[in-house]
Nucleic acid binder design. Structure first.
Lengths: 191, 191
DNA sequence: ACCTGAACACCGTTCAAGT
DNA sequence: ACCTGAACACCGTTCAAGT
């Protein structure tokens, strides 16, 4: 890459991070280009689709989340690892409001720039789920796709202004559906 | 209302129903006006916001759903009534793709034209939930807002193209989190 | 009273013309 | 090679002018 192109690339990413933090996942591409002092067409050559931009934007975060799955697998009992990672996943998507919609649709679209990271994320979760299922602490009638779906749905939910404050409670409700032999009424369980 | 205004009103609703079925909740207002052979400004006087249009569009469906809650309360045991109604609710929002997002945001916005119907829907569900809780078949650490939230999240989820096919399974997973004393692994329960 | 067309400030996409 | 500006076809909102 030419050095001026490289400069534009990193400049765009930097600005996109700020603008997306402000306006969420539907932020205007035009505004990102404008704020980066770059032609709109330049933005679109570096990132031909919105998904491509987010792929670059979230790359680090996703790597970290996948890494975290491996660490939890080594350090925690299966059921706790699964719940903790689930919670982390929901919290992560909360950073960029609306990003879970991008992930959910990428999941079904192999042409999306987010398809690969999406698959990697799902695999990381599936591994934790399988381990808990083998131990008998996670229900056996669900798979990695279900886990990913529930995580997406929950992320969407806590991204809605009216429901954000109940985030922890929702995570508790859903994880108690995933785990077996859990007391699932009256009070929250300590994790 | 003048008779020509009345004619435009019902014409707009009729056309909107079709266009929204085609393009979902983000359908272009301009296109609705265009197809109805009506000035765009006319559409906006009849329905000053997108929410106002949907309030009119969904009024019948919502009435039916609330009515159904009352019928289920009379005809079925508390736990079954709750689950059946939950399932109906999810199925309903599936009619107009994306409408659950409108509902979720209306829930927190008293100025929205959808606020009142949204509240009515939540109350209908809360009543069924309370009845099951009193009987001991629904978990006690959730309320009507939680029920509404889970219903919204599930509606969103089955509205995503990649997850639509698993709709029934997701409903099973979530309802088994809501009900107590349910076998929540290995096989689906017959309802 | 109700309707209309046009103007406004946006959006993402595309592409010929510049360096 | 890479960038740019302008043109294009959209969008929702607003409002003066018509009947």
């Amino acid at each position: 890459m030419r050095t001026d192109a490289q400069k534009n690339y990193s400049r765009l990413l930097e600005v996109a991070r700020v603008v997306v933090e402000e306006h969420g996942v539907d932020a205007s591409m035009r505004e990102i280009a404008r704020r980066a002092d770059v032609g709109l067409a330049t933005l679109f050559r570096h990132f031909p689709t919105r998904e491509a931009l987010f792929e670059a934007l979230l790359h680090m975060n996703l790597e970290a989340l996948i890494q975290q799955a491996a660490e939890l697998e080594a350090s925690s009992p299966p059921d706790q690892a699964l719940v903790s990672w689930f919670r982390e996943g929901v919290a992560f998507t909360h950073t960029y409001s609306g990003v879970c919609a991008l992930f959910a649709s990428a999941h079904a679209d192999p042409n999306s720039a987010l398809y690969a990271p999406c698959t990697a994320l799902r695999s990381a979760g599936a591994k934790l789920l399988l381990r808990a299922q083998a131990e008998g602490t996670a229900r056996k009638d669900m798979d990695g796709v279900d886990l990913f779906a529930l995580m997406s749905a929950l992320s969407w939910l806590v991204g809605q202004p009216g429901f954000a404050s109940r985030g922890d409670h929702f995570v508790h409700l859903i994880t108690s559906a995933i785990l077996t032999n859990q007391p699932n009424n009256d009070s929250k369980i300590a994790i």
